[in-house]
Design a protein around this nucleic acid. Structure first.
Length: 645
RNA sequence: GCCAAUGUAGCUCAGUUGGUCAGAGCAGCUGAUUUGUAAUCAGCUGGUCGGGGGUUCGAAUCCCUCCAUUGGCUCCA
């Protein structure tokens, strides 16, 4: 007999060799039906694998990430089985479960699989799933594994196995399809009731653009048809929030082929929105002791050679600009930091001056690959809400903490609750990748870790993700479709002060090297606005809305009164429009609701007589009649609430 | 940059096997209506069918090529 410990701490005895599924069955038949996989001593296992020693287990159902992971991983195998049946000789790369579904990278040889083929593959998957084929786990030796895939002619699997250690290799058989796989898997495929192959794309083998491009097929599956329907509805809803669609509808920004791809044109309403965000941050930065600076859009190539950017990012930059007569070369600036370093250098500094915080909404240009461009989230010209803090090593921690405060304040004001934060540290096994002394690195990394925990940030730590010049803390937010974008970033830098030979005179009258912090709470205005649009679906908070209220006269007879209301509200700094079109009230309400204008003010005979407006709130409907002064107060109260945290 | 798909009026989209196929709705303009909380009616103006080349008696439709967009891969704010 062995002892099995459950998550709640209870212990039960089972005979040795019991499986996860049998344990589930012993608890309840319903659990046995729903359970998908089991964690045994922190390892995710198949339900059919025999447990022969005392163990702590957790049973996973669909509701658990581990359960979904198992379900989707098996689905990837099911898709592979279907692909092999439809395209004999097809070769397989990797086929993992992902956050939403799964994919498989395949090499179909000379034939091309397109999205038009997906329904047929789906159909085959349904057929195969209905056969209720069992997944069989087999432990194999490395030689056996290599021979199997060599015989099959699958160089990708052979390559993968070559890197594995003997004794740890497992195969899974599903019907006629055998795959190298760590598992775990479902017991059989009968639970896969709803299947949707979503898209198809090229993906380089092992992410290396110098290697062969395989065909990646993305899909998702569910244990119930209704779940798939809900998921597809959710996708449709998400598409409605797409910032590219809303940006067009609300006339926030556009692109022109004549201007160039990846170069956004901010339309008046978008520019207003962006300016308001900038003013907001400028105000916060003033409180935190930042000093605005302004630098040009280009700089001599030598500047970026000095900073090291030319070597690292030169190939991602626009080609140098040559002057007509001299042999000078200028680059469109890919980063603001070199310019700010030169500002620091423009005069000598004492330790008493530090920290110095130079802030600039600096527009930078990077030649992103054409396939990478995406709405406002990935563009070739964008404005960073950049600032560089020059401080003593002793001030680093406190300065870092203050930047986190700013980021959190901004996110809170804008209701960004679901952000993730990531600390990127160095990989100590590869010291050659980083510059700066070990001592400084330790200090900086320690400071970031301490500060994030003091600020109660639930940050993940990634080793080896630091920049070569220092550790950093990044803030990520997901867009409507769940794609993760990096917004804010705070980076410690020992490199640039070194390269630009930046100094300050210390208390000891000696020269010292300052430390730099690069920080951008929004990241880039373009990307931030994009994510903001998707989060709000275009229904911006009142303080940001380009237009806050629109006056709707019931008929042309009341245009004069409407005009007087307009004048009065605009005098009270409420951004107000008037809809004098010769249309019925219902039509005007509908149109202005669709424009996401926060307040609609209907005025007719009653209002004209009583000097009031009939207030209708976007998405909520009629709020009743208010005196003009009441409405102004009502608006200002809401604004105060939004900007006070 | 690579793989795949897409590209028809300002926007959203029809256009069947190449032969009155250059259309619809919305937007815009004009007029009628003078409107009370999510679409009043009528008329009109919009397009070298992404650009270029080719096949054909004839191309939005077939082929080539370039450009852009979309979904991914690599990189990154």
């Amino acid at each position: 007999m062995i002892e099995i410990t459950f998550p709640d701490g209870s212990v039960r005895s089972y005979k040795s060799g019991v499986t996860g599924w049998e344990i589930a069955k012993s608890i309840s038949p319903r659990l046995a039906k729903e359970v998908l996989s089991v964690t045994v001593n922190n390892e995710l296992w198949d339900l059919t694998r025999m447990i022969t020693h005392n163990a702590a287990i957790i049973l996973h159902k669909w509701e658990d990430p581990e359960g979904k992971h198992t379900f989707w991983h098996t689905s990837a195998h099911l898709m592979a089985e279907a692909l092999e049946a439809l395209y004999p000789g097809i070769k397989f790369g990797i086929g993992p479960a992902i956050e939403q579904g799964f994919y498989y990278d395949v090499d179909p040889g000379d034939i091309v699989i397109t999205e038009h083929d997906l329904p047929e593959i789906e159909k085959k998957m349904y057929q195969l799933a209905a056969q209720k084929n069992v997944l069989i786990r087999k432990e194999v030796t490395k030689d056996e594994a290599i021979n199997f895939f060599k015989k099959k002619g699958d160089q990708y699997k052979t390559e993968l196995i070559g890197e594995l250690e003997d004794g740890t290799i497992t195969f899974y058989e599903l019907g006629s399809f055998t795959d190298l796989c760590r598992g775990p898997h479902l017991q059989d495929t009968s639970g896969i009731k709803a299947i949707k192959l979503l898209s198809i794309a090229g993906a380089y083998w092992r992410g290396d653009e110098h290697r062969k491009q395989l065909t990646r097929i993305y899909g998702i599956t569910f244990p119930k048809k209704s779940m798939l329907e809900d998921y597809l509805t959710m996708l449709e809803e998400a598409k409605k929030r797409d910032h590219r669609k809303i940006g067009k509808e609300m006339e926030l920004f556009t692109f022109s082929q004549r201007v160039g791809n990846g170069l956004p044109l901010w339309l008046p309403k978008g520019a207003q929105l962006r300016e308001r965000l900038e003013q907001f941050l400028k105000k916060v930065q003033k409180v935190y002791g930042y000093e605005p600076v302004i630098t040009p859009h280009i700089g001599q190539k030598e500047l970026y050679v000095t900073s090291g950017h030319y070597e690292k990012y030169g190939h991602d930059s626009f080609k140098p600009i040559h002057t007509p007569t001299e042999g000078e070369e200028f680059l469109l600036k890919p980063m603001n930091c070199p310019h700010h370093c030169e500002i620091y250098r423009s005069k000598p500094h004492s330790y008493r001056d530090l920290p110095i915080r130079y802030a600039e909404f600096g527009t930078v240009y990077r030649y992103e690959q054409s396939g990478e461009l995406h709405g406002l989230t990935r563009v070739r010209g964008f404005t960073q809400d950049d600032a560089h803090i020059f401080c003593t090593p002793d001030q680093l921690k406190e300065e870092f903490a203050k930047v986190i405060e700013i980021v959190l304040y901004i996110f809170k004001t804008l209701d960004f609750e679901n952000f993730e934060s990531q600390i990127s540290l160095r990989d100590k096994n590869q010291p050659e990748k980083y510059i700066g002394s070990d001592e400084n690195w330790d200090k900086a990394e320690q400071a970031i870790i301490e500060v994030t925990s003091e600020k109660r940030l639930d940050a993940t730590i990634e080793y080896g993700e630091a920049a070569f010049y220092g550790p950093k803390l990044d803030f990520m937010v997901k867009d409507a479709l769940g794609r993760k974008w990096q917004l804010g970033t705070i980076q410690v830098d020992y490199n640039l002060p070194e390269r630009f030979d930046l100094e300050y005179i210390g208390e000891d009258s000696q020269k010292h090297r300052p430390v730099m912090i690069h920080r951008a709470p929004f990241g880039s205005m373009e990307r931030f606005v994009a994510v903001l649009i998707e989060h709000t679906a275009g229904k911006f908070p009142l303080w940001l809305a380009p237009d806050q209220a629109v006056i709707i006269p019931v008929s042309e007879k009341f245009n004069n009164y409407a005009q007087s209301v307009l004048k009065s509200l605009n005098n009270s700094d409420i951004r107000t429009l008037i809809d004098e079109r010769n249309e019925k009230v219902g039509k005007k309400i509908r149109d202005n609701e669709l424009k996401h204008i926060p307040y609609l003010l209907i005025v007719g005979e009653k209002e004209q007589i009583s000097k009031t407006v009939s207030v209708r709130k976007q998405g909520e409907g009629d709020l009743g009649v208010m005196k003009l002064s009441e409405f102004v107060k009502f608006i200002n109260d809401e604004l105060d609430l939004q900007l006070k945290h």
